[in-house]
Design a protein around this nucleic acid. Structure first.
Lengths: 295, 295
DNA sequence: CCTTCGCATTACATAAAGTTATGGATCGCT
DNA sequence: AGCGATCCATAACTTTATGTAATGCGAAGG
């Protein structure tokens, strides 16, 4: 029962199964995410180990040997059984829903609403994965993504979407300290450095609002959460995405400097994966958050 | 069907199966031939990957989780299937040596010598593939070929070669019935129709021997074995390749009509494949038959 | 209290796997 | 006939996965 001694390299066997299915080293390499040379190496090593050819090499094509067909059939079945069981075991965590969002969205919008979600859905655990890098739903592991951008999304189905508005915000204290009136170059601006085309910087905001204003940021941060924290601490004016800063406007730790709010071109989307498995709990949670987002 | 993406490290899965069977990291490590630390590492990595515990660690003992039991059952079955199939594929070929030769060579030379080979190599099975069409060693499935022709052969390495001689042969009965002396047009000639440039027909023999003889064959066959059988049955004279008909000359069922034997331009070759894998048993058998051929 | 035992962890070593660059062979096309 | 395309093979080098030695921790039992 010592499988380690009886079975050749499982990497090579997995490679064999892919080559046999594709009838091509190159196509198998693409699926496996390695180079043709790596596949050639694995097949050669396996043939050496078994003392048997697996493929007859012909010009631009290969033919499997009888032994290869025999072995390949078993491998395909065995790997499918293993993969299915792994999937089943993973999804036995049926009641854990993993949500992916940006750090700012997660902090400002999602977390304050988790308590309410939990009260209404006591049987479901939420796990939050926050990262500013784009969440890839095809990679699996994420049940719901909340993404800022414009559809269509190759990896996702849009459950709901919500536009937003941008408005300059600052603390009440800063508001009292400055001269009333329009923004001017004597104001202290807080900028967030985000290298994403959907992001809005201060100069872009001024241009879109038609302001003849040369804005030189007084403070710069690489996370929006920090920029907003600085604004709330009275250190200047930051651009506020209404949906994200609404809780602070409500509790008075931030005030809007203008009545006019500029609509954003991009929107927030609640997304479900198109290619990876969906849990029922995840679909239910997605609907809940979609309602909360569009309310 | 991309198993590589769906299945965690197969090394870790194989480790899990062993740990579950032994209910012990340390005992599994011994079976796997690694250290306990390596096992600990693999299980930890798998638990991390799956996001689930596989074992509950207790004092000096471990208990598998329900998920571990589920997964372990599938793994044990899948690895057993793979191992059994690998074993079957290996042993189906390891001690079977397949020799390819023409039907005539197989019948007249090879088969009479198989008994002796078997006596001296009781662990090796010989399988004979006889066909008059050329044996392609590149196609696989043939371990040794015995081929009549001239090197070089693109698909083969020559282990040994042996020239032959051609001589007219007939049965002793036919020999007594004919007028003594040179062959004449009153003799009954048995011809074999073979469309191969290495073959020798009666007119070609007469020309090469400088005989002013118009030979019109009395009988024609498409297999040389039949031509020789007809000659032994007293129905005429056939061209005899010494190596092939030697056993009949020895047992008296055929006699040579002339002392002069014409050397053939082509030779017999014992060949091993250059491109497909060689079995140790096949190389040994090739040497045995090479010795027998050149003896 | 001390010892034992079995898993956990860390820093390091190395085997296994993968990559880049290049070659060879055999088609098909001009 | 020459050239280009395509697909597998191979060698030298790189990266990743796996394994090891040393040590630690914790919970029993004597």
């Amino acid at each position: 029962m010592n499988f380690r001694r009886r079975i050749p390299s499982l990497t090579a066997l997995m490679t064999l199964e892919a080559v046999l299915r594709h009838r091509s080293f190159t196509a198998a390499a693409i699926e496996l995410g390695v180079t043709q040379a790596a596949v050639s190496r694995q097949i050669a090593a396996l043939e050496e180990e078994l003392g048997l050819p697996m493929f007859v090499r012909r010009h631009r094509t290969i033919e499997p040997t009888a032994e290869c067909l025999t072995l390949g059939t078993t491998l395909a079945q065995s790997f499918a059984n293993i993969a299915d069981t792994v999937d089943a075991v993973r999804s036995s965590q049926q009641d854990v829903v993993t949500i992916g969002a940006t750090v700012a969205f997660s902090s400002f919008w999602l977390l304050p609403r988790l308590a309410e979600f939990r009260r209404e859905n006591s049987g479901v655990q939420i796990r939050v994965v926050s990262q500013d890098a784009r969440i890839d739903l095809d990679a699996g592991g994420i049940d719901i993504a909340i993404r800022y951008g414009r559809p269509p999304f190759a990896d996702a189905t849009v459950v709901a979407s919500q536009e937003d508005f941008v408005v300059p915000v600052c603390s009440p204290d800063y508001f009292r300290r400055r001269l009333s009136g329009d923004l001017s170059e004597t104001d202290e601006f807080i900028e967030t450095d985000v290298h994403d085309r959907s992001w809005l910087s201060w100069p872009q905001w001024a241009e879109k609002m038609g302001r003849a204003l040369r804005i030189k940021p007084h403070l710069r941060f690489n996370h929006y959460t920090e920029a907003i924290a600085a604004a709330r601490a009275g250190q200047g004016i930051a651009l506020g995405w209404r949906l994200l800063v609404q809780t602070f406007l409500d509790d008075g730790t931030l005030v809007a400097l203008e009545m006019a709010e500029m609509p954003t071109e991009d929107r927030y989307h609640v997304l479900l994966p198109v290619r990876t498995r969906r849990k029922p709990a995840a679909e239910h949670a997605a609907n809940w958050f979609a309602n909360a987002l569009t309310r």
